[in-house]
Design a protein around this nucleic acid. Structure first.
Lengths: 223, 223
DNA sequence: CGGGACTTTGACACCTCTCAACTCTCGTGG
DNA sequence: CCACGAGAGTTGAGAGGTGTCAAAGTCCCG
């Protein structure tokens, strides 16, 4: 998952779980905290997230870390380069993934339909990453955090009364490393949104969106 | 082209011009400033840059712009999403591209070898964009500009005496929008590198790298 | 040669980071 | 059951880097 505020409503879930599991694939459970793969591992398979949340990270030599993406249901993780994984990937919550052999993406391996779907996902990934560039390079802290919450609310928010509730299984520092900020700035920004009554914090890892329109406005720097 | 300081020497040029032109393809010249495609255009073809420099851009509703990438020889531009282009693309110098029908990427269209090559390029693109995330999100202005110059020197630098010369056909504001900075900061950073005798400015659009090691050190925040 | 766009430089403001202290949460063990 | 400790999160003060605004300088290109 990248933070992209879609102009037109996005066509989500390019891979439905049903169509995916119709093909001969294998399912795998990942315990909370467990790693699905590490950077440098041979990439034998790519994974469709079915449930839970994954975290994809990279580190620089000096230890600075970037959270590349969060993997939510419907996302595909583990695109290989050559035959290697180029990120670490672990679970932030108990998760289930469906895996495909790499050659299904690379040459279809006898299933043109699935091949096409996987390829379209990879191309969509490129587009979403381009949107994310804009966010990392051009948005303020408030815009970044608001965008992040808006996207999460759209994708995995659950209605509670007339509001939307969003779980944040990742730590503040995960969010910071995803958005190119520090934990302190994340914390301060959440406090600020809370004081504006745009969000409320049910608990540390649960946000309630009180004013979705206001949040979206903050995400797009309106007023 | 993205700014990624490779840890191990990169395997460049996944697509050689020779292997590319062996297939039945069409070549096209793009005048300086001319557009190869616009955001929203139907994506009929994808392009391998043979010579020149292209610029890929996206704009937000409020006008803020992001330069997604520069297309140098060996790069592929125009990865479609669905059947549309999602960036603008124009030439910063007279350029030549070789184009492939989209279905060569999508299903091979009878040329499995080329299909595989195009797909590997797309996957490499994803990895390079991930590196670029780290740069946008976690690097300082000096590190960004130094990284940018280092990568350009490696890829398209020309030896002049014992130094390396790099052409910068793009404007300062293109560089700024690529690195997530302002033109003023680009300018100031170049001046600073010049005062350290790490680079020299032959003219506005030509940089000479005097101390490549020092530049690389700046790119990686050493000392 | 002149005009306009681009680049550089300067002064200043402000956003975000840094460093530090404090609070909160939650699990552990007495 | 409560005390304790460790880790995560929050808050505050201050510094510094980058953006903003303005002006001067430079380069093209007609």
């Amino acid at each position: 998952m990248y933070v992209t505020i879609p102009t037109e409503p996005a066509e989500r879930a390019p891979l439905s779980i049903e169509s995916a599991t119709a093909a001969p694939v294998s399912t795998r459970d990942v315990k909370c905290g467990a790693y699905l793969f590490h950077e440098g591992d041979e990439a034998v398979r790519i994974y469709l997230v079915v449930s839970g949340v994954l975290r994809l990270t990279r580190v620089m030599e000096d230890g600075r870390r970037q959270v590349i993406a969060f993997g939510y249901p419907g996302d595909i993780v583990g695109y290989p380069i050559g035959d290697q994984h180029h990120t670490d990937c672990n679970a932030l919550a108990p998760s289930t993934v469906v895996s495909y052999r790499r050659d299904l993406l690379e040459n279809g391996a006898g299933d043109p339909e699935l091949h096409r779907t996987l390829l379209q996902s990879a191309l969509r990934e490129i587009s979403n990453m381009q949107d994310h560039f804009m966010m990392l390079g051009r948005k303020s802290a408030t815009e970044k955090v608001s965008s992040f919450l808006s996207v999460l609310a759209d994708r995995v928010g659950t209605p509670v009364g007339s509001y939307t509730q969003v779980a944040l299984p990742m730590s503040r520092s995960d969010i910071a490393d995803f958005l190119g900020l520090t934990t302190e700035t994340i914390s301060r920004t959440l406090t600020q949104l809370r004081k504006c009554r745009i969000i409320a914090l049910e608990n540390i890892h649960t946000v309630i969106i009180l004013k979705p329109e206001a949040l979206l406005a903050m995400a797009q720097n309106e007023d």
